[in-house]
């Protein structure tokens, strides 16, 4: 009885590893280059397809976690509410006495225990509530990114520039120990954004 249960446990363990292995393979899959979309003749359809590809970055936990729809950012690949329970505060940099900078520094800092890190960047902060992505569809996020009232007043060209070169965006590809990076490279993400803008910046439905 006991031996059976243990054997079952061992089987489950092996299975668990196999599943985790698959997941890992999927996650290291990069971004498809702009050229991969050249075959789509209709510019609108091509634009939507490119944005959908960009969605692999935009909807990744590394990005969504700090684009919360509430005052509280999320944490980790499981996207649990940030613990300690922090709040965005009046300037999206935390509350008096517990600011983002109380824990987050200008760069990632690995824990001494060898497991994980506190992420960091000189400009570490939450996206303003107008730019919330948490819980939204890719189509909704796309509309939002195009809307100057909800994108920090940026033109589409400025959005492309932001995605290609902003170093806080770039943190997503270098998130520190214990965190899955977003797929591809920032350069690829920038190229996809330029191609999306060039193809008419169309948004997925829904």
């Amino acid at each position: 009885m006991k031996a059976g249960a243990l054997a079952l446990g061992a089987a489950a363990l092996t299975l668990g590893i196999a599943i985790a292995g698959q997941a890992r393979e999927q996650k290291v899959e990069g971004l498809r280059p702009v050229s991969a979309f050249a075959g789509i003749a209709d510019p609108g359809a091509r634009s939507v397809a490119i944005f959908t590809e960009m969605g692999k970055v935009i909807q990744h936990p590394r990005c969504v976690n700090c684009h919360p729809r509430t005052d509280r950012p999320l944490q980790g690949d499981a996207q649990l509410p940030h613990d300690p329970p922090v709040s965005r505060g009046p300037a999206d940099r935390g509350m008096a006495g517990l600011e983002c900078g109380t824990c987050h520094g200008p760069r990632n800092v690995a824990f001494a225990n060898g497991k994980g890190s506190v992420p960091g960047h000189p400009e570490w902060h939450a996206a303003p509530i107008a730019m919330a992505w948490e819980g939204k569809t890719l189509g909704q996020i796309c509309q939002q990114i195009k809307d100057r009232k909800r994108n920090g007043g940026k033109s589409l060209d400025q959005i492309a520039e932001h995605n290609a070169h902003d170093s806080l965006v770039g943190w997503g590809w270098n998130p520190g120990p214990g965190r899955t990076p977003v797929p591809g490279t920032q350069a690829q993400f920038g190229e996809l954004t330029r191609a999306w803008v060039a193809s008419g910046a169309k948004c997925p439905a829904g």
Partner: peptide
């Protein structure tokens, strides 16, 4: 603590509680 994190230990878990 960094030293502990850098250890490579092989454990004998044959008598461990596994439930």
């Amino acid at each position: 603590r960094k030293g502990v994190a850098a250890l490579d230990v092989t454990w004998d878990l044959s008598k461990a509680e596994k439930r």
